[in-house]
Design a protein around this nucleic acid. Structure first.
Lengths: 232, 232
DNA sequence: ATTATTAATTGTCAAAATGACATTTAATAA
DNA sequence: TTATTAAATGTCATTTTGACAATTAATAAT
């Protein structure tokens, strides 16, 4: 008979891949690790799951502690549980990816932790299996974003169509035809055009849009299809 | 400074939602639990993660032990980690869903475990949060199956179009127009029509098909779109 | 004042995919 | 020979898609 008492116990952690977008490029937020082993090396934001919290709770706690942000978009990805992934002691880690508005973060920076944004393709090597986690998170982000409008979570309240398209192109690592993108994104009914223009990027300026939050919540589970299937 | 040694340790388990299809209805495989608490109550197939295996390894081991089957389709779903989900001791469980060909199983039944197939809608109440796991697994199955051809994993080597359509209808809890379904599924190129007919369900008989495995593997990650968006 | 420059914005058309819909066919039973 | 039953298949109008380039709005330069 199997009994609980004879079974091995493990540490359980969470690690968060935090994505942001600066208007042109996809970025990832990394921290200098504060404990041994591999202290002071770059790593994902993480921490152990406490006695009175679920892994989801723990991920939210870690994010709040290190970025000051609450209520960020957070999605469970998968568990990383190879027996020897942590050299000190067996630790299973639940991987999450988070999407945050990079501008909100800047105001709430917690300086106790050395955190820094890196361009997704120019990030330093990370500890343990964190590079694998980042690769998995990118894949999952791409997958999810091709079906649901999650990328808006990384945009400020006002954004332009060129910015939005940039973001889709970055995430999917592809170029999208401007006319077709505009048509598709408009037909979702998710965008509300504003009076104001962003003049910072061109003489003509690009109109700002905001998200129709009601429509966003209602349609979140509906499949969109924002990434074209290129034939040529 | 946070140190490993001061952190709490937990039991880590896996639980598998095993789906099957009898040609007409979606089924789920349950076992009578073999340890306290809740001994002899119906539950999902599960077990603790051992010292030298990953959670994926553990899920495969449990499935093999209880069904005799190896290499079944197994997908990590999510982690269940509410602090009090297990009344004896804190246990985190990684939920998996498995898709198996119900006919293969029948040949390999391991009688040491009291396992039984239940119609998905006529299953007994399960222990702990296992009912929630089943609900989540159904949702995930539906989601994934609407995009990728995973349902073939539940069919025998030879199957008929009506059977295939039944399966899609069961999983999506909807009725599909025969002509449109046939057109779509044919256009995927995934099916190879055989000479033989299944005469068990009608006078006319229905042609058997088999899966084009090469095409299946190649197209697995490509998005299909097999479930229609009904307008009326 | 006119022109040049630059990025934003918008339109067309042919092809493909979709959804709605009913009849014909193959086999056995009566 | 006819009745019965489930399987298989076709049409058409609408919508969606992908490929493609010209126009517009604003500032900078002359």
């Amino acid at each position: 008979m199997i009994e609980y008492s004879s079974q091995p116990h493990y540490l359980v952690a969470v690690d968060c891949i935090v994505f942001g977008f600066d208007g042109a490029h996809l970025k990832i937020l990394l921290v200098k690790r504060g404990l041994e082993p591999e202290i002071n090396k770059w790593s994902l934001m993480g921490g152990f799951v406490g006695s009175n919290e679920s892994p989801d709770d723990a991920a939210n706690r870690v994010l709040k502690k290190m970025t000051g942000l609450e209520g960020v978009y957070l999605e469970q990805m998968q568990i990383y549980g190879e027996p020897n992934r942590d050299p000190i002691e067996r630790t299973l880690s639940v991987g999450y990816f988070a999407l945050i508005d990079i501008h909100k973060y800047e105001n709430q920076l917690n300086d106790d932790y050395e955190a820094e944004w890196f361009l997704i393709n120019e990030r330093p090597k990370l500890i343990f299996d964190h590079d694998q986690m980042v690769a998995d998170a990118r894949k999952k982000l791409r997958y999810k974003a091709s079906l649901h409008p999650i990328l808006f979570e990384m945009l400020p309240k006002q954004f332009t169509l060129p910015q939005l398209q940039n973001l889709f192109e970055e995430v999917n690592d592809t170029k999208i035809d401007t006319r077709n993108f505009s048509r598709k994104i408009t037909s979702t009914g998710l965008l509300i055009k504003l009076e104001e223009k962003d003049r910072s990027s061109s003489k003509k300026g690009a109109f700002y849009f905001k998200l129709d939050k009601k429509k966003y919540k209602a349609d979140f589970q509906a499949f969109l299809n924002l990434i074209p299937n290129l034939k040529n």
